[in-house]
Structures are given as structure tokens and as C-alpha cells.
Design a protein around this nucleic acid. Sequence first.
DNA 1: CGGCATGTTGAAACGTTTCAACGAGAGTGG
DNA 2: CCACTCTCGTTGAAACGTTTCAACATGCCG
Lengths: 244, 244
Amino acid sequence: MLRKLSATFHDSEDVPAVNELVSRPASCARGCRFFHHDAETEPVEFGIVIRFARNETIYVKGGKAFYAYKVVEGAVRLSRVFADGRRQIVNFHQPGDIFGFETAEEYSSTAEAVSEVAVLRCPRICVMHFSSADPEVNRRRLHMLSRSLNAAERHVAMLGHQSARQRIATFFLTFERYEVGNGYAVDLPLGRQDIADYLGLTIETTCRAMSDLKRRQIIDTPTRRQIVIRDSVSLTAISEGLAA
Amino acid sequence: MLRKLSATFHDSEDVPAVNELVSRPASCARGCRFFHHDAETEPVEFGIVIRFARNETIYVKGGKAFYAYKVVEGAVRLSRVFADGRRQIVNFHQPGDIFGFETAEEYSSTAEAVSEVAVLRCPRICVMHFSSADPEVNRRRLHMLSRSLNAAERHVAMLGHQSARQRIATFFLTFERYEVGNGYAVDLPLGRQDIADYLGLTIETTCRAMSDLKRRQIIDTPTRRQIVIRDSVSLTAISEGLAA
DNA sequence: CGGCATGTTGAAACGTTTCAACGAGAGTGG
DNA sequence: CCACTCTCGTTGAAACGTTTCAACATGCCG
């Protein structure tokens, strides 16, 4: 079915001389134009902020992993594309999340901007430097990896045994939700195709499952990118397989 | 369908006083009865060897993660069980692999012995101690986590978009194989149900896919736990979706 | 207002699951 | 050594859910 996939490579000219960074790791803090810190923050705290347009590529699978990133604004998807053009999204990242740091030498997935995105970018070698200097940073780094692994295992569990409706329900329940008049609203940072690729379904099945939940008044879809959970009890029951 | 699942908890009485270890982390090397080391080894190198019988539980999901383990002999499965009794195996571990170390505080999955198993067990706090003392151990620890994450992402990709036959082909190709007269033999450390639970399929579908490959002379199944790859070109093509 | 990407729905084809029955192999005791 | 039993693996046929292909609707941006 060979869907068209955006493959715009972000050719940012503000990439610093990497060789220089490699040879002089301690100097990496010099060029800092941004400092980001919060209580439960992760090891990427220094770096420069870069913006990506919707569907722009941040890095590609297999590329040398020079940088680690932290989402400042917007959402990022990590995916793998197959020979037949189909795509599996392995993870999403939202503000505060670190990515590009999971692997050793090369990026294990491709990272793309789901929407307009701002990321904090820091050379990995720089993070490593901080990490070995500060046990606390190192601890956070391990913690972050653990969380990613745990998320990946939950994803495996979902794809391995849940039906389309269950996946949709589970998916919606993982997002932050805020109270509105008639339930809890969720702002989806992504479109149907991305949801489908994350859940291992086709876009049509995804739509149908959503329409079905809507028909049964469990959810509402006021706009394309927003859903309202009207009956979170039912939604949870469906998610856990306790109801159809 | 509520399958019967072994839930024998291994009540080993040789568990040392954990509190003691927690309060005196440096002392953990004292009781060493075993030392295991090889060139590409991972951080778990000290500890005692414990044996588990087939289907015995090594630890349960949600339990306090006191120990890290290294497989010495046999195979270990990491799984999550759902409300409906179905099970998703998230990972297998074979000799040399480390497990029980992925998570922060609690075990994220249940670990069970697939066959007769010998593991090297080391208190995590002890590994942490080595890890913070020796940057090289720390590096290996991070490397190991990365590998697990990468494996989990490949697993996600498989469950997300591969057909039953593709999954079986992919699965067989991940094992070590050795040359035999009519192809390459693979010793499966696990039974059909375990394979099915790993691939997110039913045992029947797993069987049928195997029978199909056998009928087409791509593989052979001389015994239940052994398969012979006769046509690895076709098997690879099937795995990658380039052939049905 | 067009034009294009994105989302939705329908009907048939397809693959996997389910339920049921049967076969094969390993271990035990006569 | 055979018969027995129990687990594990295999096969068949119908039911089920997802995908496919096609058409159409909606929203967005120039």
C-alpha cells in the first residue's frame, strides 16, 4: 500500500562542528543558549533550542547518534519504516521527554516532528560527560532508559493481545486529560494515521473503532485533534478487556 | 480461554538477609561462591548460582527488585499476564544475558524458567555499587539497557505489522544456528505455547504457520524442540515480507 | 472558492481465532 | 516391554475481526 511518507531531512546549518565537540568534550557548555531545568528533569539540560516544522525529520534510523534531545514544545514520533512502506511508530514524546539517547552508537529509530516542535538539543558526548561527572545525572539517565523500556514492554503487551477497540481505549487513557463540562478532554497531538501506526492498525480500523465508541457515547470528537471522554468507567473496562 | 499457568513461587531458603545487604552494600562480595567473566560480559559478574526447574517462577512482576540475574544455563522468559489469563512474553533470555535489572524499583515483568535453568544471582545494590565505582561497569550496564530497549522496539515492530508466517520466520532467524547435513539447525529452548505467547498469536496459528513452512520444504521439524532451516533465502524473504 | 490532505463509511476479501477432535511423545507402573 | 496417562502438538471447519479497495465527507490553506 506504500503510503507517501515525509522524508524531508532537516538540514540545519546551526549544527556545530561535531569533530570539535568530540575532541573537546568539556567545552560543550560554552555555546549554551538555553538552560532548562525542573524538579524531575532528566540528563539533557543544556543545549540549544531547535524548531522543526510538522513532519520534518529530526534524525534518521541508522544515523550516527551525535545528539540527545529533549522535547520543549510539541510532539515527536519515533518510528521504523519497513520495506513495504508501512510504518510502525514505536514511541511518542511530549514536552519534558528525552529521546535520541536510548541507543549506543546509532539511532535505533527515525524521529520526526508530529506537529510544530521545539527541542532542546545537546551533544551526547556532552551528556555523557555530565553523566560520568555527576552520579545524580547518571542515575536519571538510567531511570529514563528504564522508563522507555517499560513503555516499550507495555506497547508489546498491547500489540500482542488487544483488539482494535481495546487499543484505542488504552491509547486515549494514556494521555493527560483535563475536566470539561461533559467529561474529560484529551488533546491528541497526532492525526489518525499516526495513531493507527502506533497501534498497529490501519487508519480505517482506527476510525471505525473511534466511531463505534462515539456511537455508544463513551467518547466524543468535537474536533479532529480533540476527544472528550464521557464515560471513563466504560472506557477503562474496554481497555482492560472487561467489556466489549 | 483462561489457560492454566504455572505459578509455583521459588521459595529459596538460600536468600541472604536482604536488610543486611542493604545496610552494608560493600560486603556483598563476601559470600561469593561463583565468579563469572567473559570478554563481552555485562555488569552482573558476582553472585551465587541458583537452579530453577522448568516453569518455576524466578520473580514476579511488581515485586521489589532486590536481585539482578544472569543466565548461566537454560532459558528464561519475561512475561506479563492479563486479566483474561492470556500472557504476553516480552523477552527471552539465554546464557550470558542479564535480566531483572531493567527497572528501577520493581520488576516490570514476571521471570520464569523455560527449561531447567541456572542463573547467577547478585543483589542489585551490589551491582549498583560496582557500577558507580567502575565507569566501565556502568557503561556496560547502560549498553545492556540499550540492547533491551532496541529488542523491545523490534518486538513492537514485529507485532505491529507482521503476519503470522512472517513472525514465525523472523523468530526462527533470531536464534543461533549451526550447520547440519541438510541445512541449519536451531534448538528451540521453548515449546509452542511460549512461542505463540511471544509472537502474539494462538498456539494453533503458530502450529499452522510452521506446518505451512514445513509443507513448502523451507523448514523441517525433526523433533519438537528442533527445527532445521532448509531454505534460509526463502525464510528471510518471508520474514521481510518480500515473499508470502 | 477551489484544491488537497485528512478523515469517515461500506462491502467483500482475507487471515486469525475459536472450538473441537485427534495424534504423538514422554514418563510411570504393571 | 507394553499399556496407561498426561501433556503437548497438530489439524479441520466455522466464526470473527481486521484489512483492503473504493467512494465520499470534511476541514484547511492558498
